[in-house]
Design a protein around this nucleic acid. Structure first.
Lengths: 69, 69
DNA sequence: TAACTTTGTCAAGTATATTTTACAAATTTT
DNA sequence: AAAATTTGTAAAATATACTTGACAAAGTTA
């Protein structure tokens, strides 16, 4: 899977560490790292928590308009 | 968890059965049923597949603007 | 440069998403 | 009303999301 650079940069824009984001979303730092690096396929609830913690929506961080497959 | 009525109605609007949607998204009919009934927490990849099969986006089907928690 | 923080990664364990098989209730079609 | 399709649900099995603990590499700050 591809890296999630939108997530990575949204977090960077808030100067927030993976650790902080992890705490806010109630998961482990390793999980945040894995999501950012595309190492797996998070649940929608986690995605929503991440979005809320970063002030973004699902479409902002997890939707790719282009890739039509 | 709450039922996903947006999903249920988007599917109904296309006159598509759970079985058809399941086939298009590569999961089981029971999985679609469980997602619609809020019985669990699907992965983002499944959510994206469902959206594409129904011509909707993540925000359309899986994002609730209101509930601020 | 040395201390400190952040990040990537790995292995083993636990929790839960998803499958398979199956049956009954409900809805739609004939 | 009967036949056919659609949907809800359940139990057992499998796949995988997520945790815990730990270590090294890279980046940042003193």
């Amino acid at each position: 899977m591809a890296k999630n650079l939108k997530l990575k940069s949204a977090r960077a824009a808030l100067d927030m560490s993976q650790e902080e984001l992890a705490k806010k979303t109630g998961v482990t730092r390793q999980t945040i790292s894995a999501v950012e690096n595309g190492d797996y396929n998070p649940t929608i609830n986690l995605c929503v928590s991440i979005c809320r913690a970063l002030g973004k929506t699902l479409n902002d961080l997890f939707w790719n308009e282009e890739e039509l497959k």
